[in-house]
Write a protein that binds this DNA or RNA. Structure first.
Lengths: 148, 148, 148, 148
DNA sequence: TTTT
DNA sequence: TTTT
């Protein structure tokens, strides 16, 4: 009975870091900047940048590691997640991250100066993906008889 | 490289109609009302109701057919889809529908006066769901070693 | 060139706290819970609750202070914002909050057992609202001649 | 008590058409394509394009008319609206449109081959904007004393 | 009628 | 630490 959804369009502050859990699951992390322009009390235009900690799992992590790079503009859809950890002084601390479930590269494919690999397509965390074998019930089939 | 996302919170105008394609796929449809209050030129409060044609497939259709009913408040996440069809005069016509991929019943579970079945949980179109057997790589595992 | 949008449906963990800045601006804060059910490695249903720090400004803060209460289910639309502050040991620390720009109370109006005030309507942060006097150009006017 | 929100990232199928109502209100319209790739029953990759009728009012219409052009990639946030009209045979017909409230141009600014004007910034429908004079209560003021 |  |  609840919804936890985040939609971001921003630019990567660094290349993604791709790591693996002991169990072998891929996980990529990168900072994403969104910025907002507004006028302060004196009427002057100022810009405020928000930095988001993006975390991506499984196949989507591999795609991010391969195709994204510092400066790239992306669309991210995911959820907010706050983790606790213990710092070196033994204090419990919290970090809020965005767990991305969908990622879309934005802009023309040609304009990727710093690209690390040839251009890909949109991508989704495979965890909620159907197995390749089960396409007998298509998500959308315009040739099927629609009973309404 | 594109996004087509709709988020609605509204009330069902009718009980859902649950049908099956010749191939046996479940599909539910129902009208959903969202309304907006604003002031007109004369400053008077008016209310404008928008009606959305909701279409739901597969297991989520079954859930809607079982648990939703006229008047129920729901959260819907999905995509916009425009279909063409030929009317009885032979003219090509278009209808825009919202294909729901996620549905959440809102409000207290007890306040469902007209409910047709005991209360359920949130639900998602199974088409993008993982098979029951493959839970060895959990979507989220707080006990796993996170390598960052 | 960026988007920072959060959509939450959840329940208040406490009554809102309504305060005022030295300049007299109203600000309300409250924790909001969203929860997710999933199966762990052993296939068991577990529930994980995420707590969000909601911050609301101006007239929307007053509305939250008046009408929301612990347990109430709400729809929140806003943005992610991370603030830094110095803790009592002099360390710089960060806190991530959701600045709500829109709030909708969910559920039947009657089912508000602990309500602190008679039921209200949906509401929006006035900061981006038009002044009351300028309604000569309506947001939507079905009687106007639409030139397309 | 309702939400009607659409989020699109897609490409303009034509240059925007900018018109004015008899009352002098600017309104721009353009088709926006979103496309989805999926596999059909035979396992073949197919692409389905959805066309959205975008309608934009007031200052945001002027901005769209000035800076957008056929092929441009944009982020659109708005609401679904279905209008009825009478066709030339006297039949009542319906058309569903997306009324855009926010628009963001995507991609690098330099990569706008067909651009009709020098590059702009993000933009919002002024109807919900505050008047320029009232910035004494800033939307966000990092220098203000936050009372929590 | 766009983009990949 | 990105982009405009």
């Amino acid at each position: 009975m609840s919804v936890n959804k985040v939609i971001l369009v921003g630019n990567l502050g660094k290349d993604p870091e791709l790591r693996y859990t002991p169990a072998g699951t891929a996980v990529a992390t990168f900072p994403l900047a969104t910025s907002e322009r507004y006028r302060d009390k004196s009427g002057q235009q100022v810009e405020k940048t928000e930095w988001h900690n993006i975390v991506v799992w499984r196949n989507l992590a591999e795609i991010c590691g391969k195709y994204l790079h510092k400066g790239k503009q992306v669309y991210i859809e995911g959820k907010i997640r706050t983790r606790s950890y213990t710092d070196r002084d033994g204090n419990k601390r919290y970090i809020t991250e965005i767990e991305a479930e969908q990622m879309q590269m934005l802009g023309r494919i040609g304009d990727d100066v710093g690209s690390r690999a040839p251009a890909p397509a949109a991508a989704q965390d495979d965890f909620n993906q159907q197995p390749a074998a089960s396409f007998d019930e298509p998500a959308y089939n315009p040739d099927d008889d629609i009973p309404f």
